[in-house]
């Protein structure tokens, strides 16, 4: 990472919004472990927080952030630095801030109160989701002039990935139950980072019912260890691709 990106990233981290985000996560993470005596239940509750709230908040925060720092971006672009360094700095600053908040707020209590493999996978899934949704937010923001529209698109992405996608999957499964649809179903999981994150964590817990149909196929097909590695690999791809799409647009567009 070059020095300029780092300077930009540090500057972004001074913002209070990321602090507030960290406090909310810490309140949930630490609070749940302190209130609930059975850590097996707490991890499932935190799984829901990670899968549903985390993508929403990172997506929205990153979008707001991008538009609010438009002046800052402008100021940087007229300096003798590359556009790619600027967008890299923004991405690292935002994703880094979210990942740090998540690790302190939810990762730390998980490791302290419930140090299991499931916790470890939940932490990996959470920090990858932070990076993924920062990337998606930047991808949308660099393509849109209008802030409100970007927010709308991010909300659509979030609703689609967290609720609609698996509904559609289920519908197709019921309709086409007589056909050999395991293979396409398996592939369809890869196109939803939230599903992958859920399967990754639930495979390690006793709560197999939460796996869902697609998750069950996934586990059946790959087995636990191989399945986990593949899931993490796919999430890493998800973390990188939207960022590179936004980078490509950022370099090509007018300001």
């Amino acid at each position: 990472m070059n020095k300029i990106s780092f300077t930009i990233a540090l500057d972004l981290l001074k913002n209070k919004a990321i602090l507030i985000f960290g406090f909310i996560l810490a309140f949930l993470g630490w609070g749940m472990f302190l209130l609930e005596s059975q850590p097996e239940k707490t991890i499932l509750a935190l799984l829901q927080v990670t899968l549903i709230i985390l993508p929403l908040v990172t997506g929205i925060f990153a979008t707001v952030y991008y538009y609010n720092s438009r002046e800052f971006i402008h100021l940087l672009l007229i300096q003798p630095i590359r556009r790619s360094s600027v967008i890299r700095g923004i991405f690292i600053g935002l994703a880094g801030g979210f990942v740090f908040s998540f690790l302190v707020g939810i990762g730390l209590p998980l490791l302290l109160f419930y140090p299991t493999l499931a916790s470890l996978y939940l932490i990996i899934a959470g920090l990858l989701l932070c990076i993924i949704f920062t990337g998606i937010a930047l991808w949308v923001s660099t393509h849109q002039q209008d802030k409100a529209r970007s927010m709308g698109i991010i909300l659509l992405f979030w609703v689609f990935f967290t609720f609609v996608y698996e509904g559609i999957q289920l519908l197709i499964m019921y309709q086409l139950a007589e056909y050999p649809i395991e293979q396409p179903m398996l592939w369809s999981v890869f196109f939803n980072p939230v599903s992958i994150a859920r399967i990754l964590v639930v495979m390690q817990t006793e709560a197999a019912a939460l796996l869902g149909l697609s998750g069950a196929i996934f586990q059946d097909f790959f087995g636990s260890l191989k399945g986990s590695l593949i899931a993490i690999g796919v999430m890493v791809v998800w973390a990188v691709v939207p960022y590179f799409l936004s980078r490509f647009k950022f370099i090509k567009r007018d300001f």
Binding site: N15, E71, F72, H74, L75, I78, P80, R83
Partner: peptide
């Protein structure tokens, strides 16, 4: 290369500064 901007000083039409800085 972006290096040429080293010898340019620019004063924009509307001052574009981060609000909190």
């Amino acid at each position: 290369s972006p290096q040429y901007r080293e010898i340019i000083g620019y004063m924009p039409q509307l001052s574009l500064f981060p609000q909190n800085m």
